[in-house]
C-alpha cells in the first residue's frame, strides 16, 4: 500500500543486517535486465574481448558475491520479462554468465528485499513463480489513532519548516479529526466500533493524511488567520476520499450524513464538508 514507509523499512533493515543499504535497484518501467544481472563495459569488451574485467556487475550480483542484502524498489513496476531474471537467482542462488562460461555463486548472507504496492492497478503483477520465492509482509497502517496523529503531526511539522510555512498554533484537534476520518473510512467502522461504513477506493494512507494537513496549513497560513480550521482541510479530505466520482461520492455522503452529522463538536466540520461536497 502506498504511504506506509516500505522503503524506509527496507533501507533500515538492509543497513542493520549487512551494514550497507546502497545495493539498490530502482525499479521503473524501463529497468533493463542489465540492472539486475550484469552489463558490459563495451570499451573493454572491444579492446580485450569478453572477460570478468569487461563485466559491469549489478547491485544484485555484487550482493551475491559479497553476501550482502540487495534491495529492489518498486518491483511491480519492472517489466515482467525483466522480473523473471530474479527467479533463478532466488531459487538456485546462482547467476550464470554464459558469455564467459562462468557463474556467480551467492555467498552465505545474500538476501533480497523487494518493495511493491499492492493497491496499484495496471502494473506488472508478480508471476506466481516469483511470488512464491518471496516471503510477503504487508506493512500495516499505524495501529492506534494516537500513533497516527503523532506521525502526522511530526511529519507536518518537518514539511512545514522546509516549505517555510508559518508555525501553526493548536492544530492538533484538526489533525486528530483528519486522522479519525481517514481511519474510520479505511477500516470501514467508526472508532466507537458501533457503526460499519463503506470504504472508498482510495488508499487513505498516513502519507495522504500528512499531505491533506500540510495543504490545509498552507491554506490557513496564506488565506486564513494562520489557525488550521475545518474549512482548510475539508477540500483536501474530499479530494483524498472521492477518487471514483460515482461510487466514492456515495460513500462520502453516507459517511457525512450518518456519522459526521450526529457527532458532538463536529458541526463546523460537517458544514465545511457539505459546502465543498455540494
Amino acid at each position: 500500500m502506498p504511504g506506509t514507509a516500505k522503503t524506509w523499512v527496507s533501507e533500515h533493515l538492509a543497513a542493520a543486517v549487512s551494514g550497507d543499504s546502497t545495493l539498490l535497484v530502482q525499479g521503473t518501467a524501463g529497468t533493463p535486465e542489465e540492472a539486475i544481472r550484469y552489463g558490459w563495459n563495451y570499451a573493454q569488451l572491444l579492446a580485450h574481448g569478453p572477460s570478468r574485467d569487461a563485466l559491469v556487475p549489478s547491485p544484485v550480483m555484487r550482493a551475491m558475491a559479497e553476501g550482502m542484502t540487495a534491495r529492489v524498489e518498486e518491483l511491480t513496476r519492472i517489466p515482467a520479462d525483466v522480473q523473471d531474471t530474479l527467479i533463478t537467482i532466488l531459487s538456485e542462488k546462482t547467476l550464470p554468465i554464459p558469455e564467459l562460461g562462468q557463474e556467480v555463486q551467492a555467498v552465505r548472507g545474500f538476501n533480497l528485499i523487494a518493495t511493491a504496492n499492492d493497491r496499484d492497478r495496471g502494473v506488472n503483477d508478480l508471476s506466481s513463480a516469483l511470488r512464491r520465492r518471496f516471503n510477503t509482509v504487508v506493512l500495516p497502517l499505524p495501529a492506534t489513532p494516537d500513533a497516527e496523529v503523532d506521525i502526522v503531526s511530526r511529519r507536518v511539522d518537518q514539511l512545514g519548516r522546509s516549505l517555510d510555512l508559518p508555525a501553526a498554533p493548536e492544530g492538533t484537534d484538526e489533525i486528530r479529526r483528519v486522522v479519525t476520518v481517514f481511519r474510520e473510512l479505511r477500516d470501514g467502522i467508526t472508532t466507537d466500533g458501533r457503526t460499519k461504513l463503506k470504504s472508498p477506493s482510495g488508499t487513505l494512507s498516513t502519507a495522504e493524511a500528512i499531505s491533506v494537513v500540510t495543504n490545509g496549513l498552507a491554506l490557513a497560513a496564506h488565506f486564513g488567520d494562520g489557525v488550521l480550521r475545518p474549512d482548510d482541510v475539508a477540500a483536501g479530505i474530499l479530494g483524498a476520499v472521492v477518487r471514483d466520482p460515482a461510487a466514492d461520492r456515495v460513500v462520502w455522503q453516507e459517511y457525512l450524513e450518518t456519522v459526521v452529522r450526529e457527532r458532538d463538536g463536529w458541526k463546523d466540520f460537517y458544514r465545511a464538508c457539505r459546502e465543498v461536497s455540494a
Partner: peptide
C-alpha cells in the same frame, strides 16, 4: 502461513 501462502494478506 501469512507470509508464504497468503501473500501477506489477512
Amino acid at each position: 502461513v501469512r507470509a508464504v501462502m497468503c501473500d501477506g494478506s489477512d
